[in-house]
Nucleic acid binder design. Sequence first.
DNA 1: GCTTGTCTTGCGGGAACCCGCAGATCTTAG
DNA 2: CTAAGATCTGCGGGTTCCCGCAAGACAAGC
Lengths: 243, 243
Amino acid sequence: MRVLIVEDDALHRSYLNEAVRSALPECDDVMESEDGRLGEIEARKSRAEFVVMDLQMRERNGIEAARTIWRERPDTKILFWSNYSDEAYVRGVSRIVPEGATYGYVLKSTSEERLKLALRSVFLESQCVIDREVRGIQQKGMGSAHGLTDGEYEILVDVALGLTDKTIANRKKLSLRTVQNRLQQLYEKLDIYKETGDDESRYNLRTRAVAVALMRRLLNASAVERAERELQNDWTSQEFQGP
Amino acid sequence: MRVLIVEDDALHRSYLNEAVRSALPECDDVMESEDGRLGEIEARKSRAEFVVMDLQMRERNGIEAARTIWRERPDTKILFWSNYSDEAYVRGVSRIVPEGATYGYVLKSTSEERLKLALRSVFLESQCVIDREVRGIQQKGMGSAHGLTDGEYEILVDVALGLTDKTIANRKKLSLRTVQNRLQQLYEKLDIYKETGDDESRYNLRTRAVAVALMRRLLNASAVERAERELQNDWTSQEFQGP
DNA sequence: GCTTGTCTTGCGGGAACCCGCAGATCTTAG
DNA sequence: CTAAGATCTGCGGGTTCCCGCAAGACAAGC
């Protein structure tokens, strides 16, 4: 049994190493990689079945790395280990997990006990373990507080990328007016209107929406970069023109 | 001699504690705070002259905390200790440092030797120490690659907040056309035009500018939040109504 | 069937945005 | 003082955005 740790902070890396050795005495070998890119290579070379993965790394973030690892070996068990419970990350993870794969999601602020428990549960018993703080975000469809539909979230990302309404309509195969409608209902969910109501001063609604999405941690730079890469793919592989 | 450590990650906190005790044997007491808010209180209560401050914390980020600490005791020596060399953070720090104050800025990835050296240099010899990677950003005015004027950066922040051109004009006491001019030169610096040139597909320029600023780490959520708070101050203290 | 509700699409217009052009102001160098 | 250069400002227009209104599509329920 061999475990691969992918984490770019040296302290956290050694902490994880120690925790893994302590929680899993049956573990023969613990490998380490310093960023997502190297993690992919190491996982491919060593054929590790168990991975502890940091999100938010320099060279290549944990979501990208996990996706390629799962693409090559879908039975790999991955425990995600993240700083915050940003909605963008949680969504990103749940978007790439393949059918039936086992994974976990724990915050760096959890106690060592919980971490070790999660290691044993995910790696040995193939249970999915998700921290309570994260769980709150994962179940979508709550009381409009910060529960965006998948469709609305998609629109939000496209807007945050700086796309035009018309461009979004082409990409999503929708009418122009429909895109604008979804934007409006996005504005309502984000309380954009309430703010402009206070003063006569007006916001530019679409950029304001991006701003509050940032502040509410619905978006972050990594999510935008991911979407940007997907966009460039669509952009070059197929030309978008006409009805 | 007493040192206050403000850092919300437990591992980094203990690492810093050890480093401080090792680098500064003449240090009597090492205090710790878990976020910016508590750090302010502890600094006020203990009258610590030396602070090691993390940026990017939950409750109140390091820049805010440092500002209030410096406002109460401008002779406090602060060593900033950050994950990345994000332009937004560097700008934020250099914006709040008072006249003649001594401070340092080192990355978490630097070696323990460099960290200890920085601790001694800043705290004992009152030297300003700034990591090489950070230095690159600090000197502004380079070959248009990512060198934004202060004025351009201000505009960028206001746009990222979601403000209207007219609103920005009022806030900055400028003409509407001037704001739009600055926006145009911002677009050029960010290469917004080059991108739209590839395809007929159009971007919404202002949100696109925010997107690339995010991806180039010129902006981040903390910077937006900071600006938002300033905005709300102006908003309520004085009413903005054009002639 | 009829109604109710949600989602999509079109039309139209007022407002905001993007920008070329040209005159006015201010700085800097010779 | 003058000339050159950068910045600010107003005007006019083409485009996009924001949104109220209304008609069609589809599903669920009495």
